[in-house]
């Protein structure tokens, strides 16, 4: 029983990790006033980039960084559309979600002789080494280093948002861009930086799936994780730690799917697989009215208009 609980906790942490990165990406982007529905697509690109980077260099850390860079590159498209061209941010995000999986699989087939999945790539290490805690009941708490990184990034983002001048500016731009503009803050620059960071974080999220949990890229490695991460942003009231907590909850439901699916349980696996998605809707029903988005979230800023 106890071992099972520990296992449960371990799986929860494991599966919440990609979501945490995605959600942090959502937080930083939306806090600056840009809705980023494209998180999903950026995670997919990060997923292939990480697998490929890790496979070809043999160094998963390089894969991780490449994933961040590629995620940011995709985010640049969203930034150009939604910041410079004041495009409909939902449409732009949707376009990215169409474009990104195409690019990812195209790249995968090109790199790996027409295969839609990558070969097994080296994974990022676990925090206590491959066999840390092996043999003890706590073995499943020897989580992947990305899990720790996710928590670390959450803390850093909290500190930057609330304790530094850049955070103050980001929050001001997301609430009242015209006010920030009149004080000499470059609204466009702040938003560009935040959207790029958002893409980088989403890229890390994809990486923590392909070289943290599984060890290769597959077409379904990222399936709706970006959107669950967005729900976590809302549930977490647009704060880093709030989003982190929400992701734990969603990770928990995934763990539930795995734990229940493993045994001779009466519920068919297909029905169990619906759980994280159904859970997201339920959580939104319970919490959406109670959290308030940044005032200028999703509203393009056009200089000179209020």
């Amino acid at each position: 029983m106890f071992a099972n609980l520990i296992l449960f906790l371990g799986i929860t942490l494991m599966y919440s990790t990609p979501l945490v990165f995605g959600a942090l990406g959502g937080v930083i982007s939306e806090r600056s006033g840009v809705t980023n529905i494209g998180i999903e697509g950026m995670m997919v690109v990060g997923a292939i980039a990480a697998a490929a980077g890790s496979y070809f260099t043999g160094n998963p850390w390089i894969g991780f960084l490449v994933a961040g860079a590629c995620g940011a590159l995709v985010a640049l498209l969203h930034a150009v559309a939604s910041v410079s061209f004041a495009a409909d941010q939902t449409v732009s995000g949707v376009a990215i979600n169409m474009l990104a999986p195409g690019m990812a699989i195209f790249a995968c087939k090109r790199l790996f002789d027409g295969a839609a999945m990558s070969p097994i790539a080296p994974k990022l290490p676990k925090i206590l080494g491959e066999n840390g805690l092996a043999g003890t009941p706590f073995a499943s708490l020897n989580v992947n280093v990305t899990t720790v990184l996710a928590l670390l990034f959450t803390a850093i983002m909290w500190f930057v948002l609330y304790k530094t001048k850049w955070g103050l500016r980001v929050r001001a731009v997301g609430e009242h861009p015209a006010a920030a503009d009149t004080l000499g803050i470059d609204v466009y620059k702040v938003r560009y930086v935040c959207v790029l960071l958002s893409g980088m974080l989403a890229g890390f999220g994809g990486a923590s799936m392909t070289i943290g949990i599984i060890s290769q890229f597959t077409q379904t490695a990222i399936s709706g994780h970006g959107f669950i991460a967005m729900a976590a942003v809302i549930f977490g009231k647009w704060t880093p730690f709030g989003a982190y907590g929400a992701c734990l909850l969603f990770g928990f439901t995934q763990a539930l799917v795995i734990m229940l699916g493993g045994g001779d349980f009466v519920v068919p696996s297909q029905i169990l697989s619906m759980l994280p998605y159904a859970m997201t809707i339920i959580v939104l029903i319970l919490f959406v009215g109670r959290s308030v988005a940044p005032k200028a979230d999703g509203v393009p800023y056009v200089k000179g208009s209020r």
């Binding site: 103050l168 015209a178 006010a179 000499g184 803050i185």
Partner: peptide, 23 residues
């Protein structure tokens, strides 16, 4: 041009913040 959920002080210093080291 005031950020409603900021304090008076935060609004006044915005863009010309009083900082210690490293922002």
């Amino acid at each position: 041009m005031l950020v409603e959920n900021f304090t008076v002080t935060e609004n006044i210093i915005l863009g010309d913040e009083v900082c210690g080291s490293a922002g």
